[in-house]
């Protein structure tokens, strides 16, 4: 029995499942809007978040950073733009925060044109606001954006200064104190990539990590859509993986716990990911509900068709 058979019948004469099946998709849109905005309002007003139980992949990210000796060099690549910031910014914030708290020396780079801006914003929010003692050029440096995708990655393996001849302030790489002895990427014991697509974590694995797996460890944060392609690399090439906002929330809770000071509430900017898990939960339940309703309609129609 096809839907077309009902074209000429009166709307009210249709069985309930037919009416439900032909429901205007705008109602689904409205439900989705409410499912997301309701929890945001509720969490925004009450400030409550859901508890997180970190999974293996998120714990690995925390441990990789935690085990580095102080003053180690870390290369952090911002391979996303503000369009994906909703998903990736919380993990970027937490990653930089853990590195800053561990007193690691951070080198920020961007392979997406707009990655420089998000890197700059993260530096402002975390380092300048909360770790003002860290000096640009000595404790951290933002090298800005370089065009060329994988070509830049390959160049990093042989000649860091050629890949990034200057930092975002315009200072030549050779004049930056913390990069004086850095010749190539393999001198960084840890590479962190926060990526939203191409070029991103997958390319880092293909072009850099597969060549320097012994010298460099790699942890990645990625959007939900690219997570399935990165799971095959975990844990061999990618030592730790943060998948989407869920991974960010797990990792964020671990960082917060490790840096918690008794009697001082965690700053709200370090709870972004956990706050977003509320709308996530309700929206996922809505999706599950929609799939169930869709199938109830399907089976009801099948039974009616068979009868």
């Amino acid at each position: 029995m096809s839907a077309g058979n009902f074209n000429n019948t009166n709307a009210s004469a249709r069985p309930w499942f037919e009416r439900l099946d032909r429901v205007d998709r705008r109602w689904i849109f409205l439900l989705m809007f409410l499912a997301v905005s309701g929890p945001i309002l509720w969490i925004g007003v009450t400030g409550k978040t859901l508890p997180e139980a970190p999974t293996l992949a998120a714990r690995a990210v925390f441990q990789e950073i935690d085990q580095l000796p102080a003053r180690s060099l870390v290369l952090i690549s911002f391979d996303y733009d503000p369009a994906s910031a909703g998903e990736l910014q919380p993990m970027a914030t937490s990653l930089v925060r853990q590195c800053a708290a561990k007193n690691l020396r951070m080198v920020f780079i961007a392979l997406w044109p707009l990655g420089n801006q998000v890197a700059q914003q993260t530096i402002q929010d975390v380092i300048r606001d909360d770790y003002p003692a860290l000096k640009e050029g000595e404790d951290f440096v933002n090298m800005g954006y370089q065009a060329g995708n994988e070509a830049v990655m390959k160049l990093l393996l042989t000649d860091f200064a050629k890949a990034f001849p200057k930092d975002s302030r315009g200072e030549a790489t050779s004049n930056i104190p913390m990069l004086k002895d850095v010749k190539m990427a393999s001198q960084f014991p840890l590479l962190i990539s926060i990526s939203a697509g191409y070029p991103g974590s997958k390319e880092w694995v293909q072009y850099v990590i597969s060549a320097k797996n012994e010298e460099m460890n790699f942890v990645a944060g990625c959007t939900g859509v690219s997570a399935p392609q990165l799971y095959p690399y975990f844990p061999q090439q990618i030592a730790g993986l943060l998948g989407a906002i869920k991974g960010a929330a797990e990792y964020e809770s671990m960082v917060n716990e490790s840096l918690a000071v008794d009697g001082v509430a965690t700053a709200p900017k370090y709870l972004q990911a956990q706050r977003r898990m509320g709308p996530q939960l309700v929206a996922h339940l809505l999706m599950v509900g929609l799939i169930i309703v869709g199938n109830v309609i399907f089976f009801a129609r099948k039974r009616r068709g068979a009868a």
Binding site: F29, M32, L286
Partner: peptide, 23 residues
């Protein structure tokens, strides 16, 4: 651009409702 991107949340819902049936 980011609102355009966010439209996807609505479209995944309608696609799941329509296409995910145990045929």
């Amino acid at each position: 651009t980011s609102t355009m991107f966010a439209l996807l949340a609505f479209f995944v819902a309608s696609a799941a409702f329509r296409a995910f049936r145990a045929k």
